[in-house]
């Protein structure tokens, strides 16, 4: 008995394996039957498909919705005989590479050939999209969860003390990234990553009279895109980051006076007091450079010093 069962299972397995590689053969005389007919048997798919964008956008509307058959082929023979090989189905292999049926319509994604984001090249479109669903962009799950499934370390970065508000739901990965690869060539060459930041932070575009060269070069020299421990998404906290390229202010060598900054009353105005200590000038100069050099992205307003050629970016 068990041998018979085994044989049957084996035969069934062989058949399934063999048949799975046979392409659908839709008879030439098959006709369109309409999506309602399809839904009569495939009710679960039809329910999910009710508000699917494909249902209306590829329906070839002529008094009857034929959205199902736009992809699966004319269905009369399949409906009459119930034979699954009389209708087109899409296996993983079918979606893969140049036979990908999605690209019949979505040819506007040349990145399917030219892009570099792997899921749709390797796993087919269904790695990320559920073609019959009514979800946003037909995604299999919400965008952040979908991306974080593979990019675990990015999820952790978005939870760092300083981060773009992706986990809060106020931004999406696709606000910055093109998931189908580099389809946009709106911004050219070296400028692209800077331009991507300026899409939202356009007030830092310039060009400025007084420039900070790294801000022209690449935002990522000083900033991290996803998250950072340092404030303002800086790669490291100030002053370390600034000191990587600049010398410390030479006034940091000044020994501080121990006592009140001004005896009361101050000769220069009210409320300019406070206590000074031996290391006070180091605390002034080596805690946070942008407390004085506030305009690190560039400025049109001159700093005060003539011999410094107004370049201090303090205004």
């Amino acid at each position: 008995m068990s041998k018979q069962l085994m044989s049957m299972f084996l035969a069934a397995f062989v058949c399934v394996v063999f048949m799975s590689h046979i392409s659908a053969k839709i008879p030439d005389d098959a006709t369109y039957i309409g999506s309602e007919t399809c839904g009569a048997c495939h009710d679960d798919v039809a329910e999910a498909f009710r508000y699917n964008v494909h249902r209306v956008s590829i329906s070839a509307w002529d008094g009857e919705n034929i959205a199902c058959e736009s992809c699966h082929g004319r269905g009369s023979a399949h409906a009459d005989e119930g034979d699954p090989y009389l209708i087109k189905t899409f296996s993983e292999e079918y979606e893969y590479g140049e036979d990908n049926p999605c690209l019949d319509c979505h040819e506007g994604y040349p990145s399917a050939y030219l892009g570099d984001h792997h899921p749709h090249i390797e796993e087919g479109c269904s790695g990320c999209h559920q073609v019959h669903s009514d979800t946003e962009n037909l995604l299999v799950k919400s965008e952040d969860k979908l991306c974080f499934d593979c990019h675990i370390e990015k999820m952790a970065e978005f939870r760092m003390p300083s981060h773009h508000p992706v986990t809060e739901g106020f931004m999406n990965c696709t606000d910055c990234h093109a998931p189908h690869g580099k389809k946009s060539v709106q911004f050219v060459g070296m400028m692209s990553s800077r331009e991507r930041c300026l899409g939202c932070h356009a007030e830092k575009q310039g060009p400025y009279i007084f420039e900070h060269a790294p801000a022209n070069e690449d935002c990522m020299i000083c900033h991290k895109a996803h998250g950072s421990v340092a404030d303002n998404l800086l790669t490291q906290s100030e002053p370390f980051l600034c000191l990587s390229c600049h010398a410390a202010h030479f006034h940091s060598t000044i020994t501080g006076y121990t006592g009140s900054v001004y005896d009361s009353p101050s000769p220069v105005g009210p409320d300019r007091g406070g206590q000074s200590g031996i290391h006070s000038f180091k605390k002034v100069m080596l805690t946070k450079c942008t407390q004085c050099h506030t305009q690190v992205h560039g400025s049109d307003l001159p700093a005060q010093s003539v011999s410094g050629q107004a370049k201090g970016m303090t205004r």
């Binding site: 939870r159 003390p161 421990v229 906290s237 940091s252 060598t253 501080g256 290391h279 180091k282 946070k288």
Partner: peptide, 24 residues
């Protein structure tokens, strides 16, 4: 010559230490 200067930078690293814990 620079007798009023202070070249002791041994504690400047402490001015900008960051240590955060966040629980959601």
């Amino acid at each position: 010559e620079l007798e009023a200067a202070n070249f002791d930078y041994s504690e400047v690293n402490t001015y900008s230490d960051l240590s955060y814990n966040r629980l959601d």
